[in-house]
Computed example of a mutant assay.
Amino acid sequence: MSNSVPFTGEEKDILHAALDRHRDVVLWKLEGLDDEQLRRPMTPSGTNLLGLVKHLGGAELGWFRQTFGREMGPLPFDIDADDESDMRVEAHESTADILAFYARARAGADEAIRELALDDLGTSWSGNTVSLRWVLVHMATETARHTGHMDILRELIDGGTGDHDRS
């Protein structure tokens, strides 16, 4: 697990490390929980830990792949038909399926990050022109936001808190 972001170095490496740090926390928040706990709706809207992982996988593919004209591969939801489908884990989806989807999304995003320059431009789903730099900052903050949600959900499930493994 990546517990820190380098204090010096190349901008792209620092931004990627910041994203990776939060990605690792996403997975750490799931450790030691059973399938029921991972799927348990913890808010009136039905938010659960595994749904947040599914959402983040879709966000990574959308921002790093689709924005820059790269193949995303199949998605386990249809956001056009149901704009909440990326947050919901269906009965037929296993924990392993969602974790594999997140791993595939991370790998696809990492490939784009390696191959693109910070100033390379793409077109977002909303039609805005964005740079890889902007996408890295956006996804690091988006992932951090959702790891905060995950921290609260995890505390409600078993009392576990923290932003990274301190062992």
Rank of each mutant, 00 (worst) to 15 (best):
A103D: 13
M42A: 02
A81F: 02
A107P: 11
A109L: 07
V53H: 05
E93W: 13
T67Q: 01
R70N: 03
R88A: 01
D78T: 10
A100V: 10
H22F: 14
E60L: 15
E84R: 11
D110R: 00
D80M: 13
W28A: 05
H22G: 06
P41N: 05
V25Y: 09
F64G: 01
A103P: 12
A59K: 02
T95K: 12
R88E: 11
E111Y: 04
L38F: 02
P76N: 09
T47D: 01
D20T: 15
D97W: 10
E84S: 12
D110W: 12
D34N: 15
D34W: 05
Q66S: 13
M42D: 01
W63S: 04
L56Y: 00
H55T: 03
P44H: 03
S94E: 09
R70I: 11
L99C: 10
R39L: 01
D86L: 03
D24N: 11
L75V: 04
D110T: 05
T67W: 05
L56R: 00
S85N: 08
K29S: 12
F68T: 00
G58K: 04
E60D: 14
G73P: 06
G62I: 03
T67C: 15
G46P: 04
G51S: 01
G46S: 09
A105S: 15
I79V: 14
L56D: 00
R39E: 07
A100M: 09
A105T: 03
I79W: 15
T43R: 00
A107Y: 10
R21G: 03
L30K: 02
A105V: 08
E31Q: 15
G57N: 09
D83G: 04
A109N: 07
D97F: 10
A100W: 14
